[in-house]
Write a protein that binds this DNA or RNA. Structure first.
Lengths: 199, 199
DNA sequence: CTGTCAATACCGACCGGTTGGTATGTTGCA
DNA sequence: TGCAACATACCAACCGGTCGGTATTGACAG
């Protein structure tokens, strides 16, 4: 009777992930119980622990999704070998638009990033540092070559960019007046106007 | 025997607050138990619940400390009635230096800000919005008067500033190479170079 | 086409431990 | 004597996680 078992076979895992994602974004990781996740996903605890070894795995999975896409895009941009301005614009555009496109996942991840330092997440945090270092190196090299002005240090510039993206979920509304592309454009303009200024 | 009861009367409450503050910053609010707080503070649960009605009150108290100081400083800066550049520089300087000076409190607050939407924190969130709106209005007026360039919207500029300050705790080290004043200066330079550019 | 069987997908009751919070002292000072 | 300032013992609720069981499926044999 009712739906067959395999009908949603591919969907159950994803439904659990989507439910966990939404709840983590709303209430935070610790404040969300496994029971709440399975209730929203329409399964039971047994079902969840059939697919995931621990509650933490749900977060790790989101990390991988979010960082994986950004990191892949970064590599794609860098291997084009274009000039610093184009490259930095492309990076800002990708990270803002990409973050906005996965708003709930990104919100949960950036909210809970600091709560975790277990062995399992070290690899993910290393990826994140690699991303930041790539941006800093880009700016540092361009400043050394005289293409960018030394109006601010590479660290401060990258923190400004990542500060906007990691707090994006607190003020960005998909149905708001600003498109993600426009935000990326404005941020790039602000940063690059400073960076291109001649003393 | 030993120390008298009233000797540390003023100190017990503060010790509890300091312990909670450190633990919230280290592990997060939900991951910290009341028992851990009282253990570190050297008191018992009875003592804590004598001074605070609930665990949440500890967080609310930190909110008040952090926001209160910033808000008071903002008013002091605004009432000087100086030009937009001086005012914006003063605001950036205060929020960066002030946040760095209360690193653990600020870390706990910005980390757990979104976890709370209960009635008790609405007043605090309103204060925070007032702060943001003041900055936006400053930029908006200066842009309308032609003093600042419209290189980016007031919203984006304020998000850049607050993005840096709310994520400050993830990369700022008091014993690191950068002083807080220097970070504030760099951030102000970056933002204002963009804002003062002539097209 | 049918019967067998192992594997997969999923259920729901249950466990030990921990949680925030409280009820009831006890102590020192005014 | 009274009252603020704590300590101690304790609780009901809930936590993440486990486990024995069952329904469903696909592969294979006859």
């Amino acid at each position: 009777m009712g739906r067959s078992r395999t009908e949603g076979a591919a969907g159950v895992r994803e439904r659990i992930l989507a439910a966990a994602c939404a709840l983590f974004a709303e209430q935070g990781y610790d404040a969300t119980s496994v029971q709440q996740v399975v209730d929203r996903a329409g399964v039971t605890k047994g079902g969840l622990y059939h697919y995931f070894g621990a509650k933490e795995d749900l977060l790790v999975e989101m990390y991988r999704t979010v960082f994986g896409e950004r990191l892949a895009a970064l590599d794609r941009i860098l291997e084009q070998g274009r000039d610093p301005e184009w490259t930095l614009r492309a990076i800002i555009d990708d990270i803002v638009v990409g973050t906005a496109a996965m708003m709930t996942e990104s919100a949960a991840v950036s909210r809970e990033l600091a709560h975790m330092d277990s062995a399992r997440t070290q690899r993910l945090q290393a990826d994140w540092r690699r991303y930041q270092e790539a941006v800093r190196a880009l700016i540092r090299d361009a400043q050394a070559a005289g293409v960018f002005a030394a109006v601010a240090s590479p660290e401060l510039v990258s923190w400004s960019i990542f500060g906007v993206t990691t707090t994006l979920h607190t003020w960005f509304r998909p149905d708001g007046p600003k498109r993600a592309e426009q935000i990326a454009h404005e941020l790039a303009d602000l940063v690059l106007t400073g960076l291109k200024s001649r003393p």
